[in-house]
């Protein structure tokens, strides 16, 4: 009888300490102002700008082709899209995806439609799949811009850190 009581006590204490440490641990990782992120579907690494000012993540894309495209952008949701992406090193890759959404962007250049696809972005072995909007980022330093949709709930940004 005594032994059973002992084992139960041990189990209870271990369980208590286990859950206490789990609750105490803040599982968000700290990422810098730039980071080396792998776009899984492209098999390419990008030095990405970590941008809390951007709502959605953005990837450099040119030569966009939509299969059975319709003139109305919103009617293309669900269709197959192919595009060419390129990282800072100049490594190119043709990508194929399904259009998950369309965003109307009003900026200094006027009004533009941006197609969105779902991509898997990997940092330090942790993968996260998010909506990514495609745009020509040839004139920008960073070909991949990580926005709040990838950062939310999982990452904290410390601009004193940098990954090139």
């Amino acid at each position: 009888m005594r032994n059973i009581v002992r084992y139960v006590c041990v189990a209870l204490v271990l369980l208590l300490l286990c859950s206490a440490s789990l609750l105490a641990a803040d599982s968000k990782q700290v990422i810098g102002e730039t980071a080396r992120i792998r776009v899984e579907e492209a098999g390419l690494y990008f030095v990405a700008r970590i941008d809390t000012g951007a709502r959605v993540t953005s990837l450099h894309a040119v030569d966009i082709v939509i299969k059975d495209a319709s003139k109305k952008e919103r009617d293309n949701i669900g269709k197959q899209i192919s595009f060419v992406t390129r990282n800072n090193r100049g490594e190119r890759k043709i990508m194929h995806a399904r259009i998950a959404g369309v965003a109307l962007v009003a900026n200094a250049q006027g009004r533009e439609y941006r197609y969105e696809v779902e991509l898997t972005l990997n940092w330090k072995g942790k993968e996260k799949r998010v909506r990514v909007n495609l745009r020509d980022r040839s004139r920008m330093t960073y070909k991949l811009l990580i926005g709040r949709n990838w950062l939310a709930h999982d990452y904290l940004v410390d601009v004193d850190k940098k990954e090139e």
């Binding site: 271990l14 208590l16 300490l17 440490s21 641990a25 990782q29």
Partner: peptide, 16 residues
């Protein structure tokens, strides 16, 4: 044993 176990679980992810 409790502290060791708790430490292992807490340290597996990158704690902030």
């Amino acid at each position: 044993a409790g502290f060791l176990l708790g430490g292992c679980v807490g340290g597996s992810g990158e704690k902030v």
